[in-house]
Simulated scan of single mutants.
Amino acid sequence: MTQQVKSELIKIKDVMNMTTFSRNTVYKLIGSGEFPRQLKVGAGSYWRRKEVEQWLDDLMPATDEQVQVASEQAAKAARKKVH
């Protein structure tokens, strides 16, 4: 594997596609320390693809019920911030 592939940076739209989360959910998870932090490059925000992939791999052992609970908690937190 080349160094370029190991350190590939991706934008928020790529993160959203990989996780199926909204932009707000991604940033809420970052704020709570549950998701890899973005890197600021100039005015842009980027993530290391490898870190996002590892985060997703770490979720794989979770049961469907655990994923549902986490999704509901994220949605509840998002609604609290809006109101």
Rank of each mutant, 00 (worst) to 15 (best):
Q3Y: 09
Q3I: 04
Q3N: 09
V5L: 13
S7N: 14
E8S: 04
L9F: 07
I10H: 00
K13S: 15
D14W: 02
D14H: 08
N17A: 15
N17E: 12
T19I: 02
F21Q: 05
N24T: 09
V26C: 10
L29M: 14
G33Y: 09
E34Q: 13
F35H: 03
P36H: 07
Q38V: 04
L39G: 04
L39R: 13
L39M: 14
L39H: 14
G42S: 05
A43G: 08
G44M: 12
G44V: 06
S45W: 04
Y46D: 03
R48E: 09
R48N: 08
R49G: 01
E51G: 01
E51T: 03
E51I: 02
V52K: 04
Q54M: 07
W55L: 05
W55Y: 15
D57Y: 06
D58V: 00
L59C: 13
M60C: 02
M60H: 06
M60K: 15
M60G: 01
P61K: 11
A62N: 06
A62K: 13
T63S: 15
D64P: 06
E65F: 14
Q66T: 00
Q68S: 06
V69N: 01
V69Q: 07
S71I: 02
Q73Y: 05
A75E: 15
K76V: 00
A78M: 11
R79Q: 07
K80D: 07
K80E: 13
K81R: 11
H83K: 12
